[in-house]
Amino acid sequence: MSEIGNDGVISYELKEFKLFEPLFKWARKKSLWIVAFCTGCGGIEIPPLATARYDFERFGIMPNPSPRMGDLFLITGYVTPKTLKRIIITYEMMQDPKYILAHGSCPINGGVYWDSYNVVKQLDRYIPVDVAIAGCMPRPEAVMDGIMEMMRRIEDGTADGWKRYRENYEYYRRNQDELFGEGWREKEARRWLAWI
């Protein structure tokens, strides 16, 4: 049931495995691998979560440096246009299903940088955010609560950011192009991968 698209992505629809979908949902809920995009000040709230006091590994959450294996994309703190480019590229590298947890006030409405010329005010216009935690900074308890909310949403199927990104790709693409100008992907790719 697999077909190779022209961009080299094999999409598995696996209709014959519909029966196992509840099992996969449970597994997705219990094993969220984090790709932490530690922009801004929120990155420092992740070590207390991972160490002895709040230990998120008891829920199967594991920091994973490779975006290809990750499920949960943590955006911790303010987002400038320059980091937003990297966020979008990393998000598109991750494989469906993938979830975004925006962390702190800044990705929601700019936070203390509300009048800054160089901060993206509303992250949800550029990539789909599933759960946002308000606060400046949110304490580890609040982050834990956000992760729990994410688990609940994965289980009842409302954490559908990856589906929204596919369906409304035109909208997100238009917003991104408005901010960065046309053809920014190619420009970035040529800058980092000079041999292409």
Partner: peptide
């Protein structure tokens, strides 16, 4: 490290989750 740690069957859940991914990039 004085943490609670994941359950013993956690790698099985991880493998199930990886099998349940909707797409797979091939090179």
């Amino acid at each position: 490290q004085r943490r609670v740690g994941p359950p013993l069957y956690q790698p099985i859940i991880d493998t199930l989750k990886l099998l349940g991914k909707k797409e797979s990039i091939s090179h």
